[in-house]
Structure formats: structure tokens, C-alpha cells
């Protein structure tokens, strides 16, 4: 798993690549917490190059969404979610909890 950050005027885009499972989820979780710690509660998670995510990754997303939503207009949104991962998110009922965007421009523009 690899993570990179890009700051925009109104949000931070965090691109996660590779596989997020119980082994790598703590790192993913930490990266999300680092963004929030900087006072950025508007986060786009770019999943373009994400190959796999287990419930360990879903939990990290859920915990961060809870943190973000405590703040005015704070929110975590998902961008370019691969089909298999979207299906798993749907199975877990998570697509109700996150807005999904088809491209990063639209996702960043949401904020």
C-alpha cells in the first residue's frame, strides 16, 4: 500500500494505492488521522489505483468520517472507486455513509 497527499484550497486529496487489509490498515488510518490533525476535515480519498480493501480499511474510513463530520462542513468523500471495492462497500452498507464521485475534479470541486 502507498499513500500520497495533495492539498487543495478547500480540501486534501489522499490517494491510496495497492491493498488495504488488516496488515496495512493501521498505516492508512494514521495517514487519515494526520490529515485531520492538520485541521483539514474535508478529505477526498482517491481510490483510482486501489486494488483491494477489506473491512479493516472500511473501519478506518468510518472512524475518519465520524471525526470529520464533527466539524462544520467536514466530510470524507470517495473518488474513482473501483467496481469490486464499490460492491464490497455496498454489501457493508457503506455507500450510504460516503458520497462517491466518478473523478477527482468533481470530488475536489464538491468542497
Amino acid at each position: 500500500m502507498e499513500i500520497s497527499n495533495q492539498d487543495f484550497k478547500h480540501c486534501t486529496l489522499l490517494a491510496v494505492k495497492g491493498r488495504v487489509d488488516s496488515s496495512t490498515a493501521p498505516q492508512f488510518s494514521q495517514a487519515l488521522a494526520d490529515v485531520a490533525e492538520k485541521g483539514m476535515y474535508k478529505i477526498v480519498v482517491d481510490m483510482t489505483e486501489l486494488e483491494y480493501m477489506s473491512s479493516a480499511g472500511f473501519r478506518a474510513l468510518l472512524a475518519t468520517q465520524r471525526d470529520c463530520k464533527k466539524y462544520n462542513r467536514g466530510e470524507l468523500i470517495l473518488s474513482v472507486v473501483p467496481e469490486r471495492i464499490r460492491e464490497a462497500l455496498e454489501l457493508a452498507g457503506f455507500t450510504e455513509l460516503f458520497k462517491l464521485f466518478d473523478d477527482n475534479t468533481a470530488a475536489v470541486g464538491h468542497f
Binding site: S55, A56, L62, Q65, L91, A92, G93, E96, L97
Partner: peptide
């Protein structure tokens, strides 16, 4: 409860839930 809203959503039990669904 996979229909609970954000604040009520449980963090645990999701793995088992997915295993059973799949």
C-alpha cells in the same frame, strides 16, 4: 446494523457480516 446512520454505526462485526453475505 448496516442501515444505521453514521453515529450509530458499529465498527466491529463487519468482517463476519461480509463472510456470511459472500
Amino acid at each position: 446494523d448496516v442501515e444505521a446512520d453514521l453515529s450509530e454505526r458499529q465498527i466491529g462485526g463487519l468482517g463476519v457480516f461480509l463472510m456470511r453475505k459472500i
